[in-house]
Amino acid sequence: MMRNLVNGAVGGALATAVYSAMLMAADRAGLLEEPPPRRFARLTLSGRDKPRRGENVLGTIAHFAFGSSCGSMLGLLSAGQRVPVPIGTAYGLLVWYFGYQGLAPSIGAYPPLPKDRAGRQAALLAGHLLWGTALALALNRLRTEKAPMTAGLAPRAREQVRRIMPTPEPVPAR
């Protein structure tokens, strides 16, 4: 269980790095006005109306902490099993929805989805889908148990696979 938690945290951090690169591109394209990690950090510091010293660092730390904690949740839920990539992508969709429909509007960082700019939300949605996909790939890569593909199949199906692809007999030593 602890390994799944740690793998999820590491996978979440790796996926957050990928997502952060996309955020930088969206910011340079003018889609964000202000990257979400910086905006969230500014809300926690006094004097919200103007940039504060350290808000970029605080925002980056908070962003990776949030990404790692969300990754830990999927790591625990997966119980060390392979995570299908579409499940990771859907998980990224859930994180985006609850973050930008629930958390961000409740703390005044962004308006609710229907009232926000479509370009910003499209960039954030794409980033979270990318984050979830990268998380699934990272979790699958970090798994310690590399069971053969047939390990999870039902016994009858496994037997059919063995008939088609029999296990080679060991060659006796001479």
Rank of each mutant, 00 (worst) to 15 (best):
M2H: 09
M2D: 11
M2V: 14
N4L: 00
L5G: 07
N7I: 00
N7L: 00
G8A: 06
A9K: 02
A9Y: 03
A9M: 13
G11F: 00
G12T: 00
A13L: 13
L14T: 02
L14H: 08
T16D: 04
A17H: 01
A17V: 11
A21V: 08
A21H: 04
A21Q: 09
A21E: 04
A21F: 10
L23R: 08
M24Y: 05
A26T: 09
A26K: 03
R28D: 10
G30H: 02
L32M: 11
E34Y: 01
P35V: 07
P36A: 06
F40H: 13
A41T: 09
R42W: 09
T44K: 01
T44W: 04
L45N: 12
S46Y: 09
S46T: 15
G47C: 14
P51S: 10
G54K: 08
E55C: 10
N56C: 04
V57G: 11
G59A: 11
G59E: 07
T60I: 02
A62V: 09
H63Y: 04
H63L: 03
F64H: 09
A65D: 08
A65L: 14
F66D: 08
F66T: 15
S72P: 07
S72M: 15
G75S: 01
L76T: 02
L77Y: 03
Q81R: 15
R82V: 12
P84C: 14
V85R: 02
T89A: 14
T89L: 14
T89M: 13
L93T: 00
Y100E: 08
Q101E: 07
G102Q: 02
L103K: 02
L103Y: 10
P105D: 02
I107N: 10
A109W: 01
A109S: 09
Y110P: 01
P112R: 02
L113T: 12
K115I: 06
K115Q: 15
K115V: 07
A118Y: 15
G119Q: 02
A126Q: 01
H128I: 04
H128N: 15
L129G: 04
L130K: 06
W131Q: 05
A136P: 01
L137E: 06
A138L: 05
L139D: 05
L139P: 03
N140C: 04
N140P: 06
R143P: 02
T144H: 12
T150W: 15
A151P: 07
A151N: 09
G152S: 12
R156K: 10
R158D: 11
R158P: 12
R163P: 03
R163F: 06
M165G: 11
P168C: 10
E169P: 07
V171E: 13
P172V: 00
A173G: 10
